[in-house]
Design a protein around this nucleic acid. Structure first.
Lengths: 261, 261
DNA sequence: CGCAAGATTGACATCAATCAACTGAGGTGG
DNA sequence: CCACCTCAGTTGATTGATGTCAATCTTGCG
C-alpha cells in the first residue's frame, strides 16, 4: 500500500508535483476512483480505437503502451509504473491511438470521465496538475526517441533500466540495489528496438561488465555509475524534485517548483 | 495567410478539432497572441531549462524540438508545422526539457501565461482543447518511437515524409504533388537516427525507386502508394477528421468527433 | 573567383538481424 | 512420479544493413 491516507492514489506524482496539491485536492483525487480491479497475467485493458467513458490509474504493478503494426505484431512505445494515471490522455483525446496492457499482477482504478469533466470546470488547479502528468509521458517519449536514434543496443538497454529504476524509486519501490519487474527479454527487445537474441547477448555483456544483472524478474544494479555512463542518463526529463523516495545513486538534480497557481 | 478572420491562429487544429471551437472561442484564441515575430535562418527560440512566462505558436514556417547529448551535439526529437502551439506544454510543465528551433523563415506568436491561466479558470472547454493539442504531440512521439524501433532507414525516411506531407496538407500547405521544406539532409539524419551519408544513399534509392524526389528544399511525391507501403504509414495517430485541406492521397480515415463538451 | 556548406560516392569496418541448434524451468496429464 | 510440452533464454555461424573514413562534387553567395 502506497499510503495509509490515500491507498489508491498515494503514488500519483509522488516525488514530483504531489506536494503541489493541498489536502482538499488529494481527497478529491482519491474520491475520483469509482472502483478498482485486480488483474493477473498479461491482460490488455484498453485497445486502440476504444472510445472510453473512464480513465485508468495504475495502483500496483506495471503496464506497457503498444501499437500493432500492419502484420498485427505489437511494439512497445511506453512503460508505466504504479501511480501513473495511464490513460488520462484518453479523456482529452477521446479515442486512444494505442493499446494498454498490464504485466503480471496489477491493480488498476477506474475514474469515470464524468468526474473528470467536473474537475475541468470546478478545479482548474487540479486540471492543470492532470495536464502536467500527461505531459510527463510526452517528455519520456521524447527521451525514448533520443535513446533509440542515438544509442546502440547496450546504451538503449542501460538507459531503459536507469529510467525504470529511477521512476520506481520515485514512488518508493525498488531500492539502492535494484528492483523487481515482470518484464521478459521479449519485452525488453520490443522496448529497445532490438532482437530478443541480441537482448540476451547484451544482458550477458552488462552482467560480465559488472553493470547489472537480470535474473528471474529482478534487476540487480551492480554499478550505478557505469550504468549511468553507458546510458548517458540524465534524469532531468523525468521532472523529479530532487529527493528520491528510496536511494539516490543516479540523482544529481536540484529541487525546483515546476508548476505554480 | 492562413485565414482572413484569424490571420494568427487560423491554422490551429485545422483539419482536427478546429470545428469543435465556436466563434467566441476562436476570437478568444486569436486574442491570446500578444505579439508576433519574424525570424530568419536557424534560430533557437526556447532553450532546455528555460522558465517561460509565455508560450509560442508557430504561425508560418517549421520548427524542430531537439535535445543536446552529453557532448553538446543536438538531436531532433520532434517536428512542428504552422498552426502548432509549439510550446504550450511549457505552460503546464513550466520548465522545458528540450530546445525549440525554427528553420528558415518563420513567424511566431507569443501568448503570455497570464492569459492561459485565465483560460484555465474561465474557459474549461478551450482548456481541454489546448490539452488535446499537447496530447497530439505525444501521439506523434509514440509513432516516432514505433518508426525508429521498427523500420529500417528507408522506412523511417519514408514515414517521416509521409507524416510531414499529411500534416502540411491538413493546414492547407503543400499539395498533391509534394511540399516545400527548409530541411537539410543533416536534419533528416538526426530525425531518422541514421548518418547523413546514409540519408544521401537512401534518398537516391527512393528517387531511383520512383517514390519521391528531394531537391533544393522541395519534396516531390512520385508515388504515394509506394511511399505509404514503404513507410507502413497509417495516419490514425494524427487524429485527423477525414478531409485534408488539399489532396487526399494518403488518407483513408473516416471523420469522427474526438472531444465533446 | 573562391570559399563554405551541403551532398555524393567508394571502400571498408562494425553492429545487429537472422537462422539453427540447444538448454532449462514450469506446467500438465497419464 | 515421469514423459512431454511449451516458453524463455542461450550460443555459434552467417548475412545484411549501416556507420565511418576519405575524397570529390555542387551550389549559393560574398
Amino acid at each position: 500500500m502506497a499510503d495509509d491516507l490515500y491507498p489508491l492514489t498515494g503514488r500519483f506524482l509522488q516525488g514530483r508535483l504531489r506536494h503541489g496539491m493541498d489536502q482538499r485536492e488529494l481527497n478529491i483525487l482519491e474520491g475520483l476512483i469509482d472502483r478498482t480491479e485486480l488483474l493477473q497475467g498479461e491482460s490488455t485493458i484498453l485497445h486502440r480505437g476504444d472510445f472510453c467513458e473512464y480513465s485508468t490509474m495504475l495502483i500496483e504493478g506495471m503496464a506497457i503502451r503498444s501499437i500493432a503494426d500492419h502484420e498485427g505484431k505489437s511494439h512497445i512505445v511506453g512503460f508505466q509504473v504504479p501511480g501513473d494515471f495511464v490513460d488520462l490522455h484518453g479523456f482529452a483525446l477521446k479515442r486512444l491511438d494505442h493499446d494498454l496492457t498490464v504485466l503480471g499482477r496489477a491493480r488498476v482504478g477506474y475514474v469515470p470521465h464524468e468526474r473528470l469533466r467536473a474537475v475541468m470546470t470546478q478545479e482548474p488547479h487540479l486540471a492543470r496538475i492532470f495536464w502536467f502528468s500527461t505531459l510527463l509521458d510526452a517528455s519520456i517519449h521524447r527521451e525514448w526517441i533520443m535513446k533509440t536514434t542515438q544509442l546502440r543496443a547496450v546504451g538503449r538497454m542501460a538507459h531503459f533500466f536507469a529510467e525504470l529504476w529511477y521512476r520506481l524509486r520515485m514512488v518508493a519501490l525498488g531500492d539502492a540495489s535494484g528492483f523487481q519487474t515482470p518484464l521478459t527479454q521479449t519485452h525488453l527487445a520490443s522496448i529497445c528496438g532490438i532482437s530478443t537474441i541480441h537482448v540476451s547477448r547484451t544482458l550477458r555483456d552488462l552482467r560480465e561488465g559488472g553493470v547489472l544483472d537480470f535474473q528471474r524478474g529482478r534487476i540487480t544494479i551492480l554499478d550505478s555509475d557505469k550504468l549511468k555512463t553507458i546510458a548517458r542518463f540524465d534524469p532531468a526529463y523525468l521532472y523529479g524534485e530532487g529527493g528520491l523516495a528510496v536511494g539516490n545513486a543516479l540523482d544529481k538534480g536540484t529541487p525546483e517548483t515546476l508548476v505554480d497557481g
